[in-house]
Amino acid sequence: MIEIPKKQKRQQRLVERIEAQGYATLADLARELAVSEQTVRRDISELDAAGKVRRAHGGAAIQGNIDRSVYAQRRRQRAAEKQLIARQVADLVEDGSSVFLDTGTTCEAIASALTARRHLKVVTYSLRSALRFSERDDFVVAVPAGFVRHVDGAVVGGQDTGFLDQFLFDYAILSVSGMDAAGNICDDDQFEVRFASMAMQRAKTILLALDSSKFGKGGLVRLCHVGAVDYVISDTAPEAAIAEMLAAHDVKLVTCE
């Protein structure tokens, strides 16, 4: 039997971790792999040169689009928690409201939960979310022009950057890669951050859906500070320091506990 070299095993684990999360910091990778940050930095450099990951400030991100199997895995991960969060979000949205809905597996769950509401007007760049509303003749649904990203059904590339200028929202519903200890809300996709930022500027109320595994985690691209949102909806409460930070910025914390 041929034994796989230790370095190769470590780098494979590193790639799997980054694919699962989209982005990971040097510190997190070093802790999980039980090696120094210098070792992780060398591994990332080699993997970047091989086209397997992309070096980023303070860590590494996925190289190109997420693989279908990885996205399917994300949909299965913490599925029950996402369903609980989705119902809490839907309870906050009033019938007849105008809504911007972000993309991602959490927002797909939220889309399903929003079918319990009536007469919504929804703007989303997720075709998978839009299709969940297709049987509702009392909903108005708008999506931008562009190309469908097959892995997750997002409409990307080629869309008019002024698409959102024509809309005003009662609610912007967002889901991101994480919120770090300083309160920075981050994601790993620059396109998604740009659309989310534009929607926030046009919304009366901003709802951030964030499962508890994402508290204390960063991301490749900063969207805003948590003080810019009105609600954080999660399955369980974060650690005390983060809860206190939310309270200090008048951010309402809604949990499923």
Rank of each mutant, 00 (worst) to 15 (best):
A199Y: 01
A243G: 12
H119F: 09
L253D: 09
Q159D: 11
G219R: 03
F169I: 08
S129T: 09
E37M: 12
N65M: 11
T103I: 13
V35Q: 03
E3N: 11
P144A: 09
R87T: 12
S134R: 12
G22T: 11
S175Y: 04
A72K: 11
A80F: 13
A27E: 15
D187T: 05
A241G: 00
R202P: 00
A243N: 01
Q12K: 14
L220G: 02
V232R: 02
L164Y: 01
L220M: 12
A111H: 03
D43E: 13
L92W: 04
I242E: 06
L120P: 01
A111L: 08
C107V: 10
S197E: 15
D67C: 00
A86W: 03
V232A: 05
E3Q: 13
R222M: 12
D160T: 03
L210Y: 01
I185S: 02
A142M: 13
T124L: 08
Q166C: 04
D48P: 00
A182T: 14
E81N: 06
A113E: 07
D28G: 08
L168Q: 14
R118V: 04
T115I: 11
S197K: 15
A49W: 03
V156G: 00
L120G: 02
S97T: 08
D160V: 01
G162P: 01
A237C: 06
R41I: 03
V156L: 14
V99Y: 06
A90V: 10
T205M: 08
F100M: 04
V151E: 13
R17W: 12
P144T: 09
S177Q: 14
V123T: 12
V143Y: 01
L33E: 15
V251E: 11
E16N: 12
G51Q: 09
R222H: 08
T115N: 10
V70L: 05
V156H: 05
V141M: 05
A154V: 07
A24N: 05
I233P: 02
V148G: 01
G216W: 04
E244H: 11
A86Q: 04
R10T: 11
R87V: 10
Q63C: 10
T39M: 00
L164P: 01
A20Y: 01
I242M: 12
E3F: 09
H225A: 10
G219F: 05
L101C: 08
Q73N: 12
A79C: 04
T124V: 10
E257Y: 08
V226E: 07
G146N: 03
G157S: 11
S129F: 03
S177C: 13
L253M: 12
V229F: 00
V141Q: 04
K6I: 12
S234A: 15
A34H: 14
C107Q: 13
D137K: 14
A49F: 09
L29K: 00
S112T: 14
A56I: 10
K52W: 06
F167I: 10
A199L: 06
R41K: 13
D95R: 03
V251T: 12
V151I: 11
G216P: 00
D48M: 07
G183N: 09
D91M: 07
L47N: 02
F215H: 08
T255K: 05
